[in-house]
């Protein structure tokens, strides 16, 4: 398994809503990739109880201050607490899942 396993914490018991905030800058290909990946990951692993808020820093640069975002694309997990941040376009699903501390799907036997 991956190196990231050691860092994994499972959120198996949390059943409340997941509130994720994605910071992007304009409609660049990086931004779109991150958005598509995040949506796909959430639909596969959090179907029905997630909410993605997309914040375009080109339109609202002042919002970067709130979550202290210093690089984009960044995903901020507002809920469940504690706050967690991920930098990257999330194209590596497995690492993104672990970064978000989303419980991994059991692999097929």
């Amino acid at each position: 398994m991956s190196d990231y396993d050691t860092f994994q914490t499972e959120y198996a018991t949390y059943t409340g809503p997941w509130l994720l905030r994605l910071y992007i800058a304009g409609q660049s290909s990086k931004s779109t990739t991150a958005m598509t990946n995040l949506r796909r990951i959430c639909e596969e692993h959090l179907a029905g109880h997630f909410c993605i808020e997309v914040i375009d820093l080109l339109e609202k640069p002042q919002l970067a201050e709130g979550d202290k975002v210093i690089a984009i694309p960044t995903v901020v997990r507002k809920l469940p607490e504690p706050l967690r941040k991920i930098i990257g376009d999330l194209s590596d699903t497995e690492k993104a899942l672990i970064g978000l501390q989303l419980k991994q799907k059991p692999t097929a036997p």
Partner: peptide
Amino acid sequence: NQQFGIPVVGDGAIEIEIS
């Protein structure tokens, strides 16, 4: 001590944009 964020990079490198 700032929250930089967990870097998630697949194989190789990704591009990020800095303020």
